[in-house]
């Protein structure tokens, strides 16, 4: 009976912690969607938690695919968790070519970048952390409501 109670309590704690974690992720997503700008509409989110680069220097990358539509002005935003060691970086690829990034040619890292799409198709959204550090961030795909 005692063992049964312990298992029951464990299950309740597990389910509550899962709900709390999901809630916390949803809050992060909501805040990041707001940071994308007042005139934007949220489309997708990517909650990304990555370990640091391995001993060979291979940086972990979170990869996603999205279909983007011509004549839509997209904004890609990345928000770092308060306890994230690494700084999140977001890249956009189409057919293996980079078509957008939150790193400017000057090396400055932006929290978001705009991509007025001119070609409908499948795009790859990659999120990683600067210098291959361990990190926790949320990426948001939204569009600017013009």
């Amino acid at each position: 009976m005692k063992r049964l109670l312990i298992i029951f309590a464990f299950l309740i704690i597990c389910s509550f912690s899962r709900i709390a974690s999901a809630q916390s992720h949803s809050d992060m997503v909501f805040q990041c969607a707001q940071e994308a700008g007042n005139n934007t509409e949220y489309l997708k989110d990517y909650v990304v938690k990555l370990p640091e680069a391995n001993s060979q220097g291979i940086i972990p990358i979170h990869k996603n695919t999205a279909i983007l539509l011509k004549n839509t002005h997209y904004r890609l935003t990345v928000c770092n968790s308060d306890d994230s060691e690494g700084q999140g970086i977001i890249h956009l690829y189409n057919n293996g070519k980079i078509v957008g990034s939150s790193i400017a040619p000057s090396g400055k890292i932006y929290s978001s970048f705009d991509f007025p799409c001119q070609k409908t198709g499948s795009y790859q959204i990659w999120i990683s952390f600067k210098d291959g550090k361990e990190g926790f961030a949320v990426g948001i795909l939204s569009f600017v409501n013009e």
Binding site: L92, N94, V99, G100, S101, S102, A104, Y110, S112, F113, D114, F115, P116, C117, Q118, K119
Partner: peptide, 8 residues
Amino acid sequence: MLVFVQNE
């Protein structure tokens, strides 16, 4: 803001 203009 950082803007990527797509010419394709």
